[in-house]
Amino acid sequence: MVETNNLNESAREEKKTTISLSPTISSMATRGDESTADPSAAEVIFDVEKLDAFYGDFKALSNVSLQVYKSQVTAFIGPSGCGKSTFLRCFNRMNDLIEGARVEGTIKYRGADLYDEEVDPVEVRRRIGMVFQKPNPFPKSIFENVAYGPRLSGLKKSKLAETVEKSLRRSALWDEVKDRLSASAYGLSGGQQQRLCIARAIAVQPDVVLMDEPCSALDPIATARIEELITELKSEYTIVIVTHNMQQAARMSDQTAFFSVALDSHGSRTGELVEFDKTETIFTNPNDSRTEAYITGRVG
């Protein structure tokens, strides 16, 4: 546990410095992949290479390579069923929980192969947190929801209240719930529940936060609050977000990956990465005609 905390702390400090001192040249980011956006921008957190993802015999995702950079928001967009969620869930090995799910190819997290035999997926998930499409608070009190993760990593009781408060403040929920921390989380509105889930995810001080369409179940006002929150959080966390909302990707993200469904060589449907670049480039000057069609079709 001691080790873990050290790593987290040092990672955090590094992040702050990286922002002020640029450009950092990471040799990993300079791999000559065409789709790589601005290799000199920042340190690479995830380096995905030739990833295939399967559910049993079904290949959901084929040959994906991209990089996720530190302290940036990376957005995944694309039509439904193209494998965005599947891909996202590879980053913290969430797909391990699904019977028959497996991957081929590599995902490196800070240089270490995530799917190495030696790697404990539980340790991975402590560092790489996740926020889901539908708010999914535990049927416990607001306090207990946020305290759940820190308790798992053995945080002292005396520090718990402080951590909970910090996380709730960080997710802009504190003022709304500070008087009813022991009330059930189910009494909160959908938007509040989702911010609670974000608070719960950041309470363990993860390195990366993965978000799978975190606003799709929310009304526009709640969505705006979450977007604002995500923009704020990016100074501290690396964020990967799946979204259906093109404007949202354009507004919030630094890098955008566009996925699509294609027929593979055997004629079956599989997801593939069409284009990965700086968000600005994707939305103003996409390389691939399919990207352009998708963007213009939706944004108008």
């Binding site: 929980l97 539980v122 402590r126 560092r127 999914n136 759940y148 993760g149 719960r200």
Partner: peptide, 15 residues
């Protein structure tokens, strides 16, 4: 018990 809750817990690094 919804699968969501199990995933939320696993996502926080629970065994």
């Amino acid at each position: 018990v919804p699968r969501d809750l199990r995933e939320a817990s696993a996502g926080l690094g629970a065994r």
